[in-house]
Design a protein around this nucleic acid. Structure first.
Lengths: 224, 224
DNA sequence: CCAACGACTATACACGCGAGTAGTCTGCTA
DNA sequence: TAGCAGACTACTCGCGTGTATAGTCGTTGG
């Protein structure tokens, strides 16, 4: 958003074109391709940003900020479920893919995003546990991290397995993904997969036996 | 393995070096870096394989075959849990990372591997359900695919978030990952996260109402 | 013994990349 | 109206890449 005046300039168009290009084809997208998408010369990137790295840094910051805004706009949506709402719009889908690319790429922006998600998930889960909607965990922090990794990772694999990402119909792709995974997700979250707790009990007793000071209490998390 | 005689040749060393290089630094690893790792000249790649693409194809086939062998060697291990056993050895960890890189890269090998895993998970789950160890799902195929995507995706995110992959101590990294995720996994699989089935019930009734011919039966999977 | 073959190296080529330079055009301001 | 600052382009450079060619060395079979 920011000033509408600024958004007409080549700088903003270049930035947006870079976000689209990075999301569509990954961060190996060349400056020339980005410039062509923006309808300007490649040298303009240097003029405005200095280097590809700084261009990307601005894209990262922009996407993270827009994600934050979009998240705040749709308040009271579970952190783990934000992704179910996000890609409904073209803008949301674009942010979504960009973020997934960042995680796939292993960049700092990806790490930042994951950490944000983990913090959100932890806060939301704590509230849900307090309200009696979610069962408590023996290690809430580990569960929040684990569930974020699974959610993001699942979408990432699904994205990576598609030969080409059509940014246009990404909402449709996302909708299909949701249709495929909603039932297994709800089943797993509601009913689990094991019929009894023998596996969990085994692990808990094993872990209790191997804790450095076997102080008896089993609910203590392992060292991180 | 194969013939020990063949494994002494530069071709095999080149292939193994490529597998290591691809696993450690991704498939952008240059031919010169691979050749240096193998202790040979870069031109030898062309002499033996013709092109980088064909070298990678042979790496893919080799890794998939070695994975298959390693899997058959450790029989009666749950398909979804194979990964808990795999990276205990250096060889297993190497295969593991290579496969994750393939998925991350979106290559055909990655797709093949995912499909293999899905088929294995489906077969294993069917058996476990029949033996009363695992609760049945309303869509077994969707659950198998979902759980594989989650398991692989979770490890992929974990891998991507690490700045550098030290192949040497990958078993240690993997062990740490397991230590972090084992408890949340078992908790989720045993106890779920929701305290009641209202979310699932809502979705089921919603889906039943929106099925093309509302034939009453709710357990039918959606169109894939 | 020697000729032929295959493993292997050194060097070169063409290409695409990010980055750098010089210069043009445009719009605002004094 | 003069001039100046900034947006923008065309062109160039060095580098690393995959690929291609020519040639060397050791081994092996007739």
């Amino acid at each position: 958003m920011s000033t509408a005046q600024e958004d007409l300039t080549g700088r903003a168009r270049l930035r947006d074109a870079a976000i689209e290009g990075f999301a569509a084809h990954g961060f190996d997208e060349s400056l020339r391709a980005i410039a062509a998408r923006a309808g300007v010369s490649a040298g303009l990137v240097r003029h405005h940003f200095g280097s590809k790295e700084e261009l990307r840094a601005e894209c990262d910051a922009t996407v993270l900020e827009r994600y934050r805004i979009m998240k705040e706009d749709s308040i009271n949506v579970p952190a783990t479920r934000v992704f179910a709402q996000l890609p409904s719009s073209h803008e949301g889908g674009l942010l979504m893919v960009y973020i997934l690319r960042s995680v796939q790429d292993g960049s700092a922006a990806g790490r930042t995003f994951i950490e944000n998600m983990v913090a959100e998930a932890a806060a939301f889960t704590a509230d849900a546990v307090a309200r009696g909607l979610v069962v408590p965990s023996r290690d809430e922090a580990a569960r929040a991290r684990y569930m974020v990794q699974q959610s993001i990772g699942s979408m990432l694999v699904n994205l990576a397995m598609r030969p080409d990402v059509r940014l246009d119909d990404f909402p449709a792709v996302m909708e299909q993904y949701m249709a495929e995974t909603m039932l297994p997700t709800l089943e797993l979250y509601t009913e689990g997969v094991f019929t009894d707790s023998s596996y969990l009990d085994q692990y808990l007793s094993f872990r209790a036996a191997n804790t450095n000071p076997p102080a008896g209490r089993a609910g203590e998390p392992l060292a991180r």
